[in-house]
Computed example of a mutant assay.
Amino acid sequence: MQHEGEEVHIDTEEVSGGDKDRSLVRMVVIGTVLAIGLLSAVWITGAVRFDQAHPEAEATTAGP
Score class of each variant (00 low, 15 high):
Ser40Phe: 02
Ala47Tyr: 02
Gly46Tyr: 03
Val15Glu: 13
Glu14Leu: 08
Gly5Trp: 09
Ile36Val: 15
Ala59His: 04
Gly37Trp: 03
Ala35Gly: 09
Ile30Trp: 07
Arg49Glu: 10
Thr45Arg: 09
Asp21Thr: 09
Ile36Asn: 02
Ile36Tyr: 06
Glu58Ile: 06
Gly37Gln: 03
Glu6Thr: 10
Pro64Gln: 12
Ser16Arg: 15
His54Arg: 10
Ala41Asp: 00
Ala41Ile: 05
Thr32Cys: 14
Gly5Asn: 13
Gly17Val: 00
Gly37Ser: 01
Gly31Met: 05
Glu58Phe: 07
Arg26Cys: 06
Val8Ser: 10
Asp51His: 00
Gly46Trp: 01
Glu14Asn: 12
Asp51Lys: 04
Ser23His: 05
Ala59Asn: 03
His54Lys: 10
Leu39Lys: 12
Asp51Thr: 06
Ala53Ser: 12
Val29Glu: 13
Thr12Trp: 06
Gln2Leu: 12
Trp43Ile: 05
His3Leu: 14
Thr45Ile: 02
Val15Lys: 07
Ala35Met: 12
Asp21Gln: 10
Leu39Gln: 15
Asp21Cys: 04
Gly5Glu: 11
Gly17Leu: 04
Glu58Val: 07
Glu4Val: 11
Ile36Asp: 04
Arg49Ala: 07
Gly31Asp: 02
His54Trp: 02
Asp19Thr: 11
Gly17Thr: 02
Ile44Tyr: 01
Arg22Ile: 11
His9Ala: 06
Glu58Lys: 06
Glu6Gln: 15
Leu38Glu: 07
Glu13Met: 08
Ala59Thr: 09
Val42Thr: 11
Gly31Asn: 04
Gly5Arg: 12
